[in-house]
Structures are given as structure tokens and as C-alpha cells.
Write a protein that binds this DNA or RNA. Structure first.
Lengths: 292, 292
DNA sequence: TTGTAAGCGTTATCAG
DNA sequence: CTGATAACGCTTACAA
């Protein structure tokens, strides 16, 4: 130990990994990280991973399954100990399973295959709750807005919304558009068409911003307010006027649980029964729904 | 090659790294990533790194130099090919140089030592420009607000602000508070004390939010408006009323240049003359400064 | 207790 | 041009 100190020796983790068959690296594949929902996930994953003496290799697939495939190959070849994956839409579960090889995986926010380990919100229930809340405000004509309807979480939320609307004997109206700006325009258009919408549920933080902007534009033409409930709290929710009512996910807790679950799999030879950790969203009542 | 395909052989990167002395891993150490400025940086770094066939190990030190030291140790032992570092405040340059060992490094947003490679905004000039802009609006009593004054970029911005104020024969007033909420309170208090402030420069995106909130509170008591210029554009800047005038950095370009510079160092045995890439900020004129 | 040897999967080198 | 061999730095197992 004295020699270690005096010579400044440091173990070579690469050689250790080759010999020991363990790299202490986990791969984290996300759609992107600029979205505050994802960056918070990544932040918590990084903090929690450190507690296991491991490091994070961060990759983003930009919702592209082809890129995702290449990235899984990188992780396989790097002998990653495990993977946290928020899969791209239209991923083939069978192909994914093959591409993961022997690496244990935990899905986050979106499931990968039916009986896999996953940590995600009760998306459908969250949308149900949001829709119900607007109905309870006496609003009947409610639309929901989302960017990419190929994404599991949004699909589920749409289903939850439609379900409640059906039960209430109301017609559903799903507004879909590829990106940020297009969604704003689409919402704008819907607000001008009959039936005159009284409420809007934005199914993601991106959609919430678009919806906010569209409502604001319209508001200068048609004074009667449109109630809004957003998804995924963002800083701006309390900054805008009116403050936005949102369904929030316990993001930090979910991210940490994901890491813990993954390391349990890594430790225990992966013969554990699959876990599905599905917390509920919380409705944060602010002004935009008409509560305050 | 036929055997490769039929047996499903895949090269083991760990063995390759051990043999070849190159891991195709770069370490990225940031203060955090929840801040949209940093998450955008990380996103671009990830995308650009892929183009060099390498991957990113992401670490965050939370502005703690002790954590940063541990993380550099991790990177050294992992035989990382290079490091991108936004150093924690109060980092000892000599110690840092030692801790980097043989790994080439490029500093981002904050320099590490005097003659090192660095990509960062012309912080001081940006603050000068913001201050000058408010003065040109005829505003004389201008304060600036920041969270952590130990951080290089904020220090520089304060200096730029003070410089212009001095030249204009005005007294400087720097509002400092540890965090988000405390800063909001501090700004709030300053707005109520004499001299009656006419303008405020928030030196970061966090500070911008705090300042916005404080101004809004005050505005209900003291109608005369306070002009605001923020730093680092955020989505919310256009969403709030009034839309916030900001100094924006060419974040994406800076992040990409950082990666390119690093791989030039990695490729060329590190005998290149140190580069300092220092772009200027751009003033985006919106409502909050009184322009529109 | 201390020391030696084998092997992890590559790649570069050197003989055949 | 093909094929065997050594070395990268570590850990583990076994021998002295």
C-alpha cells in the first residue's frame, strides 16, 4: 500500500473488466434529454448509479428505432452490465430482446415487452383523472392534444381520456401534430372550429406549451376561457398566467427505483420475477383548469 | 465473415481497449443536467460524439469539487480517451491538472487553467451589452442578480456589468443569493428598497426565473415596470408576459465545437497549441426590456 | 504468507 | 498470405 501511494499506482478498470467480466457501466438509452422530463430522469439515474459504484453511458435515439439498434450494439460490444431503456416507438420487441443479448434491462416510461421489468406512470389512469377533473368543472367539450401518437405513453393517455369521455356520453376529439409548432397550429384551428371547446388536456410537457400558446392566441379573439390541464410539471407552469394545472409524475422516485431494480437484476443472475412499478400521477390544481 | 455472421460473433470492446489503449469513451463532467442550458450541451455533445464512434460517460458534480475529484478518478481508472469538463467552483487548477493525468481535456463554459483549451461565451462582453442596452433605454438604476458568485461565468458577468455601470457613472448593485427561492426573496427586497430600481439583469436562466417571479409580485404593489434582461434563453421566456429579453449563447455550436476540439487533441498526441473558442452572446429583444 | 502462472479477447508482429 | 505467439493489466487459483 505504501508502494501504491508512492508510485501513484491506479488500477486499470479496463483490464479489471476484461478479467472480471463486469464493467461497472450501465447503458442509458433515452429518446432525448432536452425535454425536462428526461433530463430529470437522467440526473437521478446518474446520482443513483454512482451509489452502486458504476457509471452511466448516455445515448439518445431521438425516437428512431434504427438509431436505437445501433446503440444497443454499442452497449453489447462494450459489455455493459445493464441497460435502462425508454424505447423508440415501433420497436420490435423480439428484435429488442435479441439485441439486448445477455444484458439485463429495465424499461422506463414505456414498456418493452409484456412481461419485462418496467417502471412507468399509470398513464391511462392519469389521463382519466385529468379528464374527469374537467368534467367535474362542468366542462363538456374537451379535447386532448399530443405530439407523437406512436409513443406508448401518449397512446395510453389517449385511451384513458377517450374512456372517460365515452362514459360521460361526450365525443372525443384528439388533436395530433408532429411537432411543437404544428401542434400549436392544430390546437389553434380546433379552438376556432365547432364544437366550441371548453377544455383541453395536453398529454406531455411539450404539448402543454403548444396548447398554452394556442389558447393565448385565441383568447385575444374569443374571450371565454378554455380550461387546460397539462402533463409533466415544468418550471413555466407556475410562471404563466394562468398558472397551469398539471398531472405530475414522481419522476425522481421513478428514476431511482429504475436504477435499484436494474442493479438487483445485475446482482441476482436475472432469475427474479419481472417487476412492474407503476406509480400514480398527482393532480396539481392551479388556475388553468378553473380551480382557483 | 460468414462464420462471423453464422456464429453471431461480436468483438469485445473491453479486450480491444485493453489491447489498443483506446476506449472510445469520453468523460463528460457537468455541474448538473436539469438546467436546460446544460441539458442542451449534453445533448449536442452526445450527438457529436457518436460521429467519432465514441460514447459518453456522463457525470455530474453538483458544483462540488470533492465530488468532481472522485469523478476524475473514475475516468482515469476507466482509461477514458478524453474529458469535457465544466469545473466546479474553487477547483484547484494544479490539482485538476494532476487528476486529469494523461487525459486530454476541453473546458466548457468555465476555464480550468489559464492556457488550457476552452470553449465558452464571452461572458463579460455579454453582460456589458445587456447593461448598455438598459442604459440606452434611459434606465439608470440597474441591479444584477445571480445565484452562486463563486462560479466563473457569473463572476465575469458581474465584472462586465460593473464596468459599464462605472463608465456610466452609476452605482452597481449586485443581488446574490444561494438558491432559486432565496434569490427571488432577495430581488423582491431590493425592489422595495431605495434606490428605486428601473432595471434588472439576471445572470443565468435560474436567476431569470427568480427575477421574473419577484418582479411580478412587486408589480402588484408598485405599478411602474422594472425592465428585465435574462441570460440563457429558455422556453418560458416567450411564454410569460411580458416576453423576456435575453442574452443567448450559441449553445449547440459551442457544444459541438467542444467535442471536435477534444477529438483533435485525442488524435494529435496533444501537442497542439491551446485553443480558446469564445463566441459572443446575442441579444434577443423582446418585451421585458421595454423594446416592444 | 508470498510468489507464480494462467487466462480474459484482442491485435500486432513475426515465421513459415 | 496464412497461422502461431506475445502482450495489454488484472484476478484467481494454486504452489512453495
Amino acid at each position: 500500500m505504501e508502494a501504491v501511494r508512492s508510485l501513484g499506482y491506479e488500477p486499470n478498470e479496463v483490464a479489471r473488466s476484461l478479467r472480471g467480466g463486469r464493467t461497472n457501466l450501465i447503458g442509458v438509452i433515452f429518446p432525448q434529454i432536452v425535454n425536462p422530463y428526461f433530463s430529470r430522469c437522467v440526473q437521478q439515474i446518474e446520482l443513483e448509479t454512482t451509489r452502486f459504484g458504476a457509471s452511466v453511458i448516455l445515448l439518445t435515439h431521438q425516437e428512431d428505432p434504427v438509431k436505437q439498434s445501433r446503440q444497443l450494439e454499442v452497449l453489447r460490444r462494450s459489455q455493459c452490465d445493464g441497460v435502462i431503456l425508454t424505447a423508440a416507438p415501433n420497436s420490435d420487441p423480439v428484435k429488442l430482446k435479441r439485441e439486448l443479448g445477455t444484458m439485463p434491462v429495465v424499461a422506463l416510461d414505456r414498456p418493452i415487452w409484456d412481461d419485462g421489468d418496467v417502471v412507468m406512470l399509470q398513464h391511462r389512469q392519469a389521463a382519466r383523472e385529468a379528464t374527469l377533473h374537467l368534467l367535474e368543472h362542468g366542462i363538456k367539450e374537451i379535447a386532448c392534444a399530443t405530439t407523437d401518437p406512436n409513443i406508448y405513453s401518449f397512446q395510453e393517455r389517449i385511451l384513458g381520456y377517450e374512456e372517460v369521455m365515452r362514459q360521460a356520453g361526450q365525443k372525443s376529439h384528439v388533436i395530433v401534430a408532429g411537432d411543437y409548432g404544428a401542434l400549436q397550429d392544430a390546437v389553434h384551428a380546433s379552438l376556432l372550429e365547432p364544437p366550441r371547446l371548453g377544455g383541453l388536456i395536453a398529454l406531455s410537457n411539450m404539448a402543454t406549451v403548444s396548447a398554452m400558446l394556442a389558447i393565448r392566441e385565441i383568447h385575444q379573439i374569443q374571450p371565454p376561457k378554455v380550461a387546460l390541464i397539462g402533463f409533466d410539471d415544468v418550471d413555466l407552469a407556475i410562471l404563466v398566467e394562468p398558472a397551469i394545472t398539471v398531472m405530475v409524475q414522481p419522476v425522481d422516485r421513478m428514476a431511482r427505483e429504475t436504477v435499484n431494480l436494474l442493479f438487483r437484476l445485475i446482482g441476482s443472475g436475472r432469475d427474479l420475477p419481472p417487476q412492474r412499478i407503476m406509480p400514480e400521477a398527482e393532480l396539481i390544481r392551479r388556475n388553468s383548469c378553473g380551480c382557483l
